[in-house]
Protein backbone atom coordinates (compact mmCIF):
# COMPACT_ATOMS: atom_id res chain seq x y z
CA UNK A 1 0.00 0.00 0.00
CA UNK A 2 1.23 3.46 -0.90
CA UNK A 3 1.92 5.79 2.03
CA UNK A 4 -0.20 8.94 1.97
CA UNK A 5 1.62 12.15 1.24
CA UNK A 6 1.19 15.48 2.99
CA UNK A 7 -1.40 16.80 0.55
CA UNK A 8 -3.62 13.74 0.88
CA UNK A 9 -3.36 13.88 4.64
CA UNK A 10 -4.71 17.44 4.60
CA UNK A 11 -7.59 16.43 2.37
CA UNK A 12 -8.48 13.63 4.75
CA UNK A 13 -8.32 15.96 7.75
CA UNK A 14 -10.61 18.38 5.95
CA UNK A 15 -13.11 15.60 5.42
CA UNK A 16 -13.26 14.93 9.14
CA UNK A 17 -13.76 18.60 9.90
CA UNK A 18 -16.68 18.67 7.48
CA UNK A 19 -18.21 15.69 9.23
CA UNK A 20 -17.99 17.26 12.66
CA UNK A 21 -19.43 20.49 11.31
CA UNK A 22 -22.58 18.67 10.30
CA UNK A 23 -23.77 17.34 13.64
CA UNK A 24 -27.34 16.74 12.60
CA UNK A 25 -26.20 14.65 9.67
CA UNK A 26 -23.65 12.84 11.78
CA UNK A 27 -25.49 11.65 14.83
CA UNK A 28 -29.17 12.43 14.91
CA UNK A 29 -30.96 10.12 12.57
CA UNK A 30 -34.18 10.92 14.29
CA UNK A 31 -37.01 8.90 12.88
CA UNK A 32 -40.72 8.27 13.27
CA UNK A 33 -42.58 9.79 16.15
CA UNK A 34 -39.60 11.73 17.52
CA UNK A 35 -39.02 13.44 14.16
CA UNK A 36 -42.68 14.45 14.05
CA UNK A 37 -42.45 16.01 17.51
CA UNK A 38 -39.31 17.92 16.58
CA UNK A 39 -40.78 19.15 13.33
CA UNK A 40 -43.89 20.40 15.08
CA UNK A 41 -41.72 22.28 17.54
CA UNK A 42 -39.20 23.76 15.10
CA UNK A 43 -41.54 24.35 12.18
CA UNK A 44 -39.16 22.48 9.90
CA UNK A 45 -36.08 24.56 10.69
CA UNK A 46 -32.87 22.69 11.41
CA UNK A 47 -31.55 23.24 14.95
CA UNK A 48 -27.83 23.75 15.53
CA UNK A 49 -25.90 21.70 18.04
CA UNK A 50 -24.68 23.62 21.08
CA UNK A 51 -25.52 25.95 23.98
CA UNK A 52 -27.40 23.21 25.83
CA UNK A 53 -25.91 21.04 28.49
CA UNK A 54 -28.07 18.02 29.03
CA UNK A 55 -27.29 15.95 32.07
CA UNK A 56 -28.53 12.38 32.24
CA UNK A 57 -27.03 9.24 33.70
CA UNK A 58 -25.15 7.14 31.15
CA UNK A 59 -26.74 4.02 32.58
CA UNK A 60 -30.14 4.16 34.23
CA UNK A 61 -30.90 1.17 36.41
CA UNK A 62 -34.56 1.98 36.68
CA UNK A 63 -36.18 3.37 33.57
CA UNK A 64 -39.17 4.46 35.62
CA UNK A 65 -37.42 7.44 37.08
CA UNK A 66 -34.38 8.84 35.33
CA UNK A 67 -33.13 12.20 36.58
CA UNK A 68 -32.67 14.75 33.82
CA UNK A 69 -31.27 18.21 34.20
CA UNK A 70 -30.78 20.79 31.53
CA UNK A 71 -28.97 24.08 31.43
CA UNK A 72 -28.94 26.44 28.48
CA UNK A 73 -26.44 29.22 27.97
CA UNK A 74 -28.35 32.48 27.80
CA UNK A 75 -28.24 35.91 29.44
CA UNK A 76 -31.99 35.56 30.21
CA UNK A 77 -32.77 39.24 29.73
CA UNK A 78 -35.92 40.68 28.19
CA UNK A 79 -34.11 40.93 24.83
CA UNK A 80 -32.47 37.57 24.77
CA UNK A 81 -33.76 34.55 26.58
CA UNK A 82 -34.62 30.91 26.13
CA UNK A 83 -38.29 30.55 25.31
CA UNK A 84 -39.18 26.89 25.04
CA UNK A 85 -37.28 23.68 25.40
CA UNK A 86 -38.69 20.41 24.16
CA UNK A 87 -37.43 17.13 25.51
CA UNK A 88 -37.91 14.02 23.43
CA UNK A 89 -37.12 10.36 24.04
CA UNK A 90 -36.97 8.61 20.68
CA UNK A 91 -37.51 5.07 21.97
CA UNK A 92 -40.60 5.66 24.08
CA UNK A 93 -44.04 4.65 22.79
CA UNK A 94 -44.87 8.34 22.84
CA UNK A 95 -41.74 10.34 22.04
CA UNK A 96 -42.72 13.57 23.78
CA UNK A 97 -41.46 13.99 27.34
CA UNK A 98 -41.97 17.61 28.28
CA UNK A 99 -41.92 21.14 26.95
CA UNK A 100 -40.40 23.65 29.35
CA UNK A 101 -41.26 27.32 28.93
CA UNK A 102 -38.96 29.91 30.45
CA UNK A 103 -39.37 33.66 30.79
CA UNK A 104 -36.82 36.40 31.55
CA UNK A 105 -38.05 36.11 35.13
CA UNK A 106 -36.65 32.60 35.32
CA UNK A 107 -33.21 34.16 35.76
CA UNK A 108 -31.48 31.02 34.54
CA UNK A 109 -32.53 28.61 31.83
CA UNK A 110 -32.11 25.65 34.07
CA UNK A 111 -34.48 22.90 35.11
CA UNK A 112 -34.54 19.36 36.39
CA UNK A 113 -37.22 16.70 36.05
CA UNK A 114 -37.50 12.95 36.33
CA UNK A 115 -38.49 11.01 33.28
CA UNK A 116 -39.52 7.53 32.19
CA UNK A 117 -37.52 5.68 29.58
CA UNK A 118 -38.87 2.47 28.08
CA UNK A 119 -35.54 1.14 26.76
CA UNK A 120 -32.01 2.21 25.90
CA UNK A 121 -32.44 5.23 23.68
CA UNK A 122 -31.54 8.80 22.81
CA UNK A 123 -32.89 11.73 24.75
CA UNK A 124 -33.00 14.85 22.64
CA UNK A 125 -33.46 18.45 23.74
CA UNK A 126 -34.36 21.24 21.34
CA UNK A 127 -34.30 24.83 22.58
CA UNK A 128 -36.03 27.78 20.98
CA UNK A 129 -34.55 31.20 21.80
CA UNK A 130 -36.46 34.47 21.91
CA UNK A 131 -34.91 35.48 18.57
CA UNK A 132 -36.16 32.26 16.95
CA UNK A 133 -32.82 30.47 16.74
CA UNK A 134 -32.81 26.78 17.56
CA UNK A 135 -30.30 24.63 19.36
CA UNK A 136 -30.17 20.94 20.08
CA UNK A 137 -28.32 18.39 22.14
CA UNK A 138 -28.72 14.68 22.66
CA UNK A 139 -27.58 11.97 25.01
CA UNK A 140 -27.85 8.21 24.89
CA UNK A 141 -29.09 6.56 28.04
CA UNK A 142 -28.63 2.86 28.61
CA UNK A 143 -31.58 1.46 30.50
CA UNK A 144 -30.92 -1.70 32.45
CA UNK A 145 -33.79 -4.13 32.42
CA UNK A 146 -33.91 -6.69 35.16
CA UNK A 147 -31.10 -5.00 37.05
CA UNK A 148 -28.12 -7.09 35.86
CA UNK A 149 -26.03 -5.18 33.37
CA UNK A 150 -27.06 -3.88 29.97
Amino acid sequence: MKAINRRQAFALGGGFVMLTLMPMAADAEVTGDAAKWIEKFTGGKQPVKGKISLDLPEIAENGNTVPLSINIESPMTADSYVKDVMIIADGNPNAGVATLSFTPMSGKAEAAIRIRLATTQNVIAVAKMSDGSLFTEQKTVKVTIGGCGG
Binding site: G96, V97, T99, I113
Partner: peptide, 27 residues
Protein backbone atom coordinates in the same frame (compact mmCIF):
# COMPACT_ATOMS: atom_id res chain seq x y z
CA UNK B 1 -46.12 32.65 38.45
CA UNK B 2 -44.76 35.38 40.65
CA UNK B 3 -46.97 38.36 41.50
CA UNK B 4 -49.19 37.43 38.58
CA UNK B 5 -46.38 37.22 36.01
CA UNK B 6 -45.36 33.88 34.50
CA UNK B 7 -41.97 32.57 35.61
CA UNK B 8 -41.84 29.03 34.36
CA UNK B 9 -44.26 26.51 32.97
CA UNK B 10 -44.10 23.15 31.34
CA UNK B 11 -46.31 20.80 29.39
CA UNK B 12 -45.85 17.25 30.59
CA UNK B 13 -46.33 13.98 28.72
CA UNK B 14 -46.83 10.45 30.07
CA UNK B 15 -43.02 10.03 30.04
CA UNK B 16 -42.78 11.97 33.31
CA UNK B 17 -42.18 9.79 36.36
CA UNK B 18 -44.81 9.29 39.04
CA UNK B 19 -44.84 12.00 41.72
CA UNK B 20 -43.44 14.57 39.31
CA UNK B 21 -40.44 16.49 40.60
CA UNK B 22 -39.75 19.79 38.90
CA UNK B 23 -36.85 22.06 39.69
CA UNK B 24 -36.31 25.47 38.12
CA UNK B 25 -35.01 28.96 38.89
CA UNK B 26 -36.50 32.38 39.40
CA UNK B 27 -35.01 35.84 39.59
Amino acid sequence: EFNGKPVFSCALEPAISANPYIQFDAR
